[in-house]
């Protein structure tokens, strides 16, 4: 009971303060929205919220899936081969050092009009790095004895990876995935905001901006928060399912 009540009350107080601030300063709608304006904004654009919210969600998820496949693959070859690791690491670090916000307009220009492709691409580019690093570190720090118990029986490299190395790196992998999902979400939104005539919640936000429609902009922020939480808990759920054993270990 208390677990729900305390956050609920805190939220109510926050919303009331916000409402009061706008009322007290007599800010008009084109300056700042109050919570009571959000309901009407949501209602007015309800169809757009659903269809654009779906766009943002699936683009993020597809980008994330791509970065899981690519990141795991990259981490795998780096974890298994020292030479590949030495060759790729500086490249990866260099790539990761570029603030991704600067890549967004470049991609938006190169693939102008291809909104889905653009957005998925940036979500992927921005989020594969932590996954690749975590998998490669997990594999290269695997104690040799773990490998030897299966290798001594004549197990193939793939069997060792599948039965031991992969499950053993799952906790680190999910730690990285939590970072990656947040990054992918940022990537998706940046691209949607920048692309002209696009779809997605970012585009809705941008149209709110051009029209100085603060209630709409704030409503989008709230919708994004909800989506972000949803995505994060999707990862948490997967983590509990596949790497729950590590949870017990740390307790």
């Amino acid at each position: 009971m208390r677990r729900f009540l305390v956050p609920l009350i805190a939220m109510l107080i926050f919303v009331m303060l916000w409402e009061w601030l706008v009322w007290f300063n007599e800010w008009p709608n084109y300056k700042m929205a109050s919570p009571s304006d959000l309901g009407p904004a949501f209602w007015k654009y309800r169809i757009l919220f659903f269809s654009f919210g779906w766009d943002t969600l699936w683009r993020t998820v597809v980008g994330l899936l791509l970065s899981i496949f690519f990141g795991v693959f990259l981490g795998m070859i780096m974890g298994f081969s020292k030479i590949i690791q030495e060759g790729l690491y500086p490249l990866l670090i260099g790539f990761n050092a570029i603030p991704k916000a600067t890549i967004v307009p470049i991609l938006a220009l190169i693939f102008v009009g291809q909104h889905d492709f653009n957005t998925v691409l940036i979500a992927f580019l921005i989020s594969f790095f932590p996954i690749a690093v975590s998998v490669s570190i997990g594999l290269s720090t695997l104690e040799p004895e773990y490998r030897d118990i299966l290798r001594a029986l004549g197990a193939s490299k793939f069997t060792i990876f599948w039965k031991i190395a992969l499950p053993k790196t799952l906790p680190e992998f999910f730690g990285a995935l939590k970072v990656a999902v947040t990054l992918a979400f940022i990537g998706t939104n940046l691209m949607e905001i920048v692309s002209p005539h696009g779809r997605g919640l970012g585009a809705l936000f941008d149209s709110g901006k051009t029209n100085s429609d603060y209630p709409l902009m704030f409503a989008v922020l709230i919708a994004l928060a909800i989506l972000g939480i949803l995505l994060y808990y999707m990862v948490v759920f997967l983590e509990r399912t596949f790497a729950g054993w590590a949870d017990q270990l740390s307790r």
Partner: peptide, 25 residues
């Protein structure tokens, strides 16, 4: 083979750990 480090797999229970070689051999 057995080493100083028992290298049991934490995501398997004891029975499944013991049966591991039968999945290879």
């Amino acid at each position: 083979m057995a080493f100083q480090n028992p290298v049991l797999l934490e995501w398997r229970n004891i029975l499944q750990n013991v049966m591991l070689p039968l999945e290879i051999v």
